[in-house]
């Protein structure tokens, strides 16, 4: 039986500003454990909103979101934060590393926030950096790294808790094609090694091709949901 890691039931998200914007309109989605899903669509189709809602950064206007069986709506802000920290790894287009911390410290940060000692967290972070092919750059700060290196640090940080779910928002969007390919390869390796589920928001067909499932969004609705063999 396929265990469901992400379940969205009729999720709507409406932004009430000067103009009322429906970002998600009755989205239903189930992602089995270990599955990789690419989410594609034009700008404004609701991709980022979907990702925000899945990771608990945002709450739906209506509908239900279950992560690993837990209803996000029933959780406090702190509980959602802990879930995000320990159950969900997040990778951003803009890397979003802490500029004041070096590579090892960035990767170790989620562990330290849980109360792990500095040395133990640093050891685990260094090991994870080695795993993502960045063993020699851990003492450097983000502004001393290339884009690809930064994204590797971000991936190592996302994986530090060995989360069952990885959310990636345009992970190759700020990288040249060669570096982008390296990152995609890394993500494939991660999936193969850890069996991590992934939701990958992208405009990039190459990136989408590493996923066995593709969802297309338009005006906040899923307009296609296809399964295929990953490349």
């Amino acid at each position: 039986m396929n265990e469901i890691i992400v379940s969205l039931e009729n999720v709507c998200k409406i932004f009430d500003g000067a103009a009322r914007v429906t970002a998600l309109d009755g989205v239903g989605l189930e992602v089995p454990r270990g599955q990789r899903v690419s989410v594609m669509g034009p700008s404004g189709s609701g991709k980022s909103t979907l990702l925000n809602i899945v990771c608990g950064l945002d709450v739906p206007t209506s509908g239900r979101v279950l992560i690993n069986g837990s209803d996000l709506a029933a959780m406090s802000d702190d509980d959602r934060t802990r879930l995000r920290r320990e159950q969900i790894g997040m990778i951003f287009q803009t890397f979003n590393l802490m500029p004041t911390l070096n590579g090892v410290e960035n990767v170790a940060l989620p562990l330290r926030l849980c109360g792990m000692s500095g040395n133990e967290a640093a050891d685990r972070a260094a090991a994870m950096l080695e795993r993502v092919g960045l063993s020699g750059r851990g003492s450097h700060r983000p502004d001393e790294m290339s884009g690809g290196e930064r994204q590797r640090v971000a991936i190592a940080r996302a994986l530090i808790f060995d989360p069952p779910l990885l959310l990636a928002d345009e992970p190759t969007g700020n990288l040249d094609s060669a570096t982008g390919d390296e990152i995609l390869k890394l993500l494939e390796d991660v999936h193969n090694e850890f069996g991590t589920s992934m939701i990958l928001v992208t405009h990039n067909e190459n990136a989408a091709a590493i996923c066995e499932r593709r969802i297309d969004l338009l005006d906040g609705r899923i307009v296609s949901d296809t399964l295929r063999s990953p490349k």
Partner: peptide, 13 residues
């Protein structure tokens, strides 16, 4: 933005 990242990766309020 940095504080946002901190919260996004699991920093509590």
């Amino acid at each position: 933005r940095e504080l946002g990242i901190f919260r996004a990766i699991g920093g509590l309020r």
